[in-house]
Design a protein around this nucleic acid. Structure first.
Length: 381
RNA sequence: GGGGAUGUGGCACAGCGGCAACUGCGGCGGACUGUAAAUCCGCUCCCUCUGGGUUCCUUGGUUCGAGUCCAAGCAUCCCCA
């Protein structure tokens, strides 16, 4: 395979003059990723309910898969045998695989640290104990063949004692180094992950260690949106990103998909986001809109002739599917309801990010930010 | 005409002497942030609501106490003529 010369380079196209926002392009073997960007989540090698061409038509440039889930089912060897995860799921654009650290550590009662890794129960599958080292995790990621893989990390929840978070930072740092040393696949970028909870000193320690142990082509920012309120998150997130993280590398705020948080985090200099929020809430009957969130299950939509959002160009809105119809689908638990809403919500976030990029490119992000914060939707997210 | 069965909250069902009454559906609302999630959680007789009032086809009875037992009536369903 011929690898492009600019592989994993991050070209910054514009820096907003009044905020820390920037727009750029990150180059991968399966295509360029414009930033800032939102990445739809397709945990088990599928964005639930959507065909790859539909995901592409919504404007998605990169999607997520999950190493842990795919390792459990159908197994990394099988995916490799089938030609890698792109071929397996028939998506030829960039793919980022999350390590599974989030999953492993979200069930603390079924997890224990070992000398060189973790043991945990595959609670969502057969419940058996699985042992993982950072090296194992890299081997799986390489078999899957994603364009970007994430280091194995420990994601502490909130609230957590500083001591506990400090240990998570130590462990994540050590694992980041081991992942860096174990990772060999040249067409796959490995991102380190900054942890440290709501403690600035721990965040900086985590970042410093990652910078020492390898030349990561990008950095994840983990351990936010784990139960803390928004202002608590911004207290450390904003200075961390705006003042301390390397400017020439993409910064990926993991697990955040609230539109208002996206807009604000971009102003601090975040480049990438992912979140299950648009797709999960879609399947549960919620639509994102310029009016805020709409719960399509509500009786008030039963006779509503309007589309989900007049300003939206998603298939559901372009197709003229009324709120009344989608209300009916959702209430009857018809598959199409979740499918239409998933497309709508993904499009909502991708369109938002398109406007974000345009605003940055034109040097008017401060204005965009102000307008967003004054919009009716801003307070509802 | 004869025989049998059943009547419980919007619907379907449970209940076999201590019940404002199990459960499911329906209805109303909420949650969802690197997907254990097309899931989960409330509320759903009335009121002046950490209490009170009326309920289980109707009426009467037995009992400290009846949706539950007895009697009569009404209604519905099934079988035989």
């Amino acid at each position: 395979m011929d690898l492009p010369e600019n592989l994993f380079k991050f070209d910054i196209i514009a820096n907003d003059p009044n905020t820390h926002a920037r727009c750029g392009v990150f180059h991968t073997a399966h295509g360029d990723i414009p930033t800032p960007i939102f990445m739809p989540v397709g945990t088990k090698a599928t964005v639930k309910g959507l065909m790859p061409f539909q995901i592409r038509d919504l404007g998605a440039k990169i999607i997520l898969n999950n190493t842990y889930h795919l390792a459990m089912r159908p197994g990394a060897d099988l995916v490799e045998e089938m030609g890698g995860v792109h071929e397996f799921m028939r998506w030829d654009g960039p793919i980022l695989t999350d390590s599974g650290g989030f999953q492993v550590f979200s069930h603390n009662e079924f997890m224990k640290l070992t000398n060189d890794g973790v043991r945990f129960r595959a609670v969502d599958y057969d419940g058996r104990w699985v042992s993982w080292t950072p090296e194992d995790n890299m081997a799986i990621a390489e078999k899957l063949g994603s364009d970007i893989c994430m280091q194995l990390d420990q994601c502490p929840g909130y609230p957590a004692t500083k001591d506990y978070v400090a240990r998570a930072v130590e462990l994540s740092s050590m694992w980041g180094e081991r992942c860096w040393n174990a990772h060999t696949r040249p067409d796959q970028a490995l991102f380190g992950i900054v942890q440290g909870g709501m403690h600035m000193d721990l965040r900086l320690r985590s970042l410093a260690h990652l910078e020492e142990c390898g030349d990561f082509p990008g950095y994840g920012i983990g351990g936010y949106s784990v139960g803390e309120d928004h202002e608590t998150m911004y207290e450390t997130l904003e200075p961390l990103v705006a003042e301390h993280m390397p400017k020439n590398k993409p910064r990926y705020l993991m697990g955040v998909g609230n539109p208002t948080t996206l807009v604000r985090a971009v102003a601090s200099g975040v480049d990438m986001f992912d979140c299950v929020l648009p797709t999960r809430t879609a399947r549960m009957g919620t639509a994102f809109s310029s009016e805020g969130r709409l719960n399509l299950k509500n009786a008030r939509f039963a006779h509503d002739h309007g589309v989900l959002d007049e300003r939206c160009d998603c298939p559901a809105c372009r197709g003229g599917f009324t709120r009344a119809y989608i209300h009916h689908l959702v209430r009857q638990k018809e598959m199409l309801g979740g499918i239409l809403l998933s497309q709508h919500n993904i499009r909502y976030l991708l369109a938002l990010m398109e406007r974000v990029r345009a605003a940055i490119a034109e040097g008017r992000y401060a204005e965009f930010y102000r307008d967003w914060m004054n919009s009716p939707a801003a307070n509802d997210f």
